[in-house]
C-alpha cells in the first residue's frame, strides 16, 4: 500500500508567522509535483508586513555585528541541510548557500570598509560610520527565485535593515521555503517578511508606503519600474533601479547593494582637557 503524501499549504511570512493572505486569495503556481496554490497577498498584507518590519528594526539594527553574522551564517547551515528540497525548487542552490556565507561575513567588516576617521582642521574627534537605512522594500528577481532572492535580501539585512520582500510572481515557492529556513535559524521575526502574489498589485503600495525607507526594484516589471520609482520619491526612499538586462546573479557579488541601504553617520566631539 503506497503512503498518501501530506501536501503543503504555501503561506505568507509576516512578523515571524505564516499567515494566509488576509484576502483569502490564492493563485496557481507550478511546483515539482504539479500545480499548487500559493497565497495571493493583498495591499493589506503588504502594510502588515511593513508594520512587522518596522517593529523588528530596533532590535535587529542594535544587535551586535557579530551576532548578525552568526545568525546569517546559521541560515546557510540550515539551507545546506535542505539542499535536496531547494534543488527541486530552484537552480543554483549551492551558489545561494555560499552567498549567505559571503554576506554573513560582512556584518562585522562593513563599518571598517565603509567608515573612516576624518582628519578635520581643528581639535575634534570625527568619525563616519555606516548605519542601516531602516525598512527596505524588495521586489525579488522574477527569474532567479532563490539565488536572485538571496542576492538582494542578504545585502539589505546584514547591516541591520529589515525587509519586506515581494517574491517572484511565477516562482514563489523557493521564497516560501526560504521563509521556513529563516523562521528556524534565529533570524528574529519581522526582520524578513515575504509576500507572494501579483507583483503589479503588491509593488505600488510597497513603493509608496511612507514607513518604508528604501526600495530595491530588481524584480520590477519593466513597464512599472518608472512609476514605482516615482511613488518612492514621496518620502525620498533610497532606490536601487531595475537593471537592464537582468544581472547575472551567479556572478561574483559586490558591496553595491549593501551600501545602497546604509546611511553614513558622522559624529564630532571636541578634544580637550
Amino acid at each position: 500500500m503506497t503512503r498518501l503524501p501530506v501536501l503543503k499549504t504555501y503561506k505568507l511570512y509576516i512578523g515571524g508567522k505564516f499567515p494566509r493572505s488576509e484576502s483569502g486569495r490564492s493563485y496557481p503556481v507550478s511546483s515539482p509535483s504539479g500545480v499548487v496554490n500559493a497565497a495571493q497577498g493583498s495591499r493589506k498584507d503588504v502594510r502588515d508586513a511593513v508594520v512587522a518590519a518596522r517593529a523588528a528594526f530596533g532590535g535587529w539594527s542594535r544587535a551586535t555585528a557579530y551576532n548578525r553574522g552568526q545568525v546569517l551564517y546559521r541560515v546557510a547551515e540550515l539551507l545546506e541541510g535542505r539542499r535536496a528540497e531547494f534543488g527541486r525548487l530552484a537552480p543554483d542552490v549551492d551558489e545561494a548557500i555560499d552567498r549567505w556565507v559571503w554576506y554573513a561575513g560582512w556584518t562585522d567588516k562593513i563599518a571598517q570598509v565603509a567608515g573612516n576617521a576624518n582628519p578635520v582642521a581643528g581639535p575634534y574627534f570625527n568619525l563616519s560610520v555606516p548605519e542601516p537605512t531602516g525598512v527596505v522594500g524588495i521586489l525579488a528577481p522574477q527569474s532567479s527565485p532563490l539565488l536572485g532572492l538571496v542576492s538582494v535580501l542578504a545585502p539589505a539585512i546584514l547591516t541591520g535593515n529589515t525587509a519586506v520582500v515581494i517574491a517572484s510572481e511565477s516562482s514563489p515557492l523557493a521564497a516560501v521555503a526560504l521563509a521556513e529556513v529563516l523562521a528556524t535559524s534565529d533570524v528574529p521575526g519581522g526582520v524578513v517578511n515575504i509576500v507572494t502574489g501579483r507583483t503589479a498589485e503588491l509593488a505600488p503600495p510597497l513603493a509608496g508606503h511612507l514607513d518604508v525607507n528604501a526600495l530595491d526594484l530588481a524584480g520590477a516589471p519593466v513597464d512599472l519600474a518608472a512609476s514605482l520609482e516615482g511613488l518612492a520619491a514621496e518620502n525620498l526612499k533610497r532606490v536601487v533601479r531595475r537593471a537592464d538586462p537582468e544581472p547575472d546573479w551567479t556572478a561574483e557579488p559586490a558591496l553595491d547593494r549593501v551600501l545602497a541601504f546604509t546611511e553614513t553617520k558622522t559624529v564630532w566631539h571636541p578634544i580637550g582637557v
Binding site: N126, E263, K265, W268
Partner: peptide, 16 residues
Amino acid sequence: GVVWANTFNRFDPTSP
C-alpha cells in the same frame, strides 16, 4: 547624518 557632541555647526571638507 551628523551628530555634534558638545559642539554644533562644525564643518570641514574632510567630514561627510
